[in-house]
Simulated assay, not measured.
Amino acid sequence: MDADVVGAVNELTGRWVRSLGPGNTVVSGLGLWPLLAILATAADEPGRAELAAAAQVAAADGSRLAVQLIDALDESADLHAALGVWVSEQLKLAESFGEVVPAPVVGMLTGQSAVDKPKLDAWTTEHTDGLIREMPVVIDPDVMLVLASALCLRTTWARPFTEQIKRLQGDWAGSWHWLERTDHDLDSVRRYDDLTVITVRGDADVDVLLGLGSGDVVGGLLDAAGRPADGVPGSALIEGSGEVAPGVQIGKTTSARPDVRLSLPSFQVSSSHDLLESAELFGLSAVTSNPGERGHFSAISPAPLAIGQAKQEVLARFFATGFEAAAVTTMAMTRAAMVTRHERRLDVVLDRPFAFAAVLRESRLPIVAGWINSPTEAGRTAD
């Protein structure tokens, strides 16, 4: 697999995660990168340069490298990847379309949601093995082209965990499905300065890395992923005392040789991302603007096209016997004049005492009027 592409996906993933607020989240830079790379090849300036910079790829090579990446991923034992393109029956294609938007199968869009959406959802379900069942895209007559990627990962631990219900206090207060296992692979734990990285090996070709520390933990973990032999291995840490790395204490075992006990909660996290809310981060600013009759993708069609939707659905589950994840990322092109604008709005929340009245429209005659002193009590359904 192209090392430059791996680095670009790694950088995109880290940049994306660091841009998000606090709280549980999951993203797939791997699912997004091929779409950005293809768009870089397909776009006119200035969007071409913006997309190429976001994907860290030469624009002329983006489409080719994206297809190569999808093909390489699909050769994995545990990972399935797919790329799809659907084009409106009403869209006139440029002669260069097949060169800039290559895809194994190009489907057609009728512009009717009742016809198109089930087809796109079925593709999503098939290529995520049912983990995600709906493609995150709104279909209407203005949608001229949909470009999508799908990823599905299922791996089984080489050494499974035991599971128990554990009651925790503080920030983790509540009952958790807690996972624990013990083995002798000391070097599955490594310290990279102020970061601890634990490798949980799958039984095929996927491992899951867990990072614990301070500062930019995600960035550090992604950096460590590319340097698996660096850092201080557990076989050296075992010679210390006390806390020898973040979250790693020296304890005692009844085993005949040193071992590692790993404890953590099982977890499931899913996220929906509207990529246009961070258009600049992904190089989408120019290609989402309305340039009038010119459009942004003349290599795709002489019609004035712009990106009107860009979304990702992604989930990840870590449990006693394995790990699974899926992501579907979509870009929808609309006629440039129809691009959805994200304007400011007023959010009004009546979560404090308020009055109400019903009046006749013309005479303003009040019919009923009242006062809600406790909105939460008023909101209860009457028996």
Rank of each mutant, 00 (worst) to 15 (best):
111 G>W: 12
362 E>C: 00
231 G>M: 07
171 D>T: 08
371 W>P: 00
21 G>S: 14
247 G>T: 03
376 T>R: 13
230 D>N: 05
148 A>Y: 12
175 S>A: 13
367 I>P: 09
69 L>W: 09
373 N>C: 03
167 R>V: 14
321 T>H: 10
327 A>D: 06
34 P>G: 05
271 S>W: 04
38 I>R: 05
65 L>D: 14
373 N>V: 11
374 S>C: 12
233 P>R: 05
93 L>E: 06
265 P>I: 03
186 L>Y: 12
129 D>M: 09
167 R>K: 08
91 L>C: 02
78 D>H: 02
263 S>L: 13
39 L>M: 14
266 S>E: 11
331 M>T: 04
152 C>A: 15
309 Q>C: 09
81 A>D: 04
205 D>S: 10
374 S>H: 14
306 A>K: 03
340 T>N: 13
327 A>K: 02
226 G>D: 05
336 A>E: 05
234 G>Y: 09
368 V>P: 00
188 S>Q: 15
383 D>T: 11
142 D>M: 09
74 D>G: 11
73 L>S: 04
136 P>W: 06
101 V>S: 06
105 V>T: 12
168 L>E: 15
76 S>W: 11
337 A>P: 00
243 E>W: 06
69 L>I: 00
118 P>Y: 14
8 A>I: 02
31 G>K: 03
135 M>E: 08
318 F>C: 07
220 G>I: 07
34 P>C: 10
116 D>T: 08
353 P>T: 13
96 S>Q: 14
67 V>M: 13
81 A>C: 04
99 E>V: 05
270 S>M: 12
191 R>I: 04
162 T>W: 08
60 A>H: 07
364 R>F: 14
343 E>D: 09
30 L>F: 06
151 L>V: 04
158 A>G: 15
99 E>D: 15
93 L>K: 03
20 L>D: 07
96 S>K: 10
306 A>H: 07
116 D>H: 11
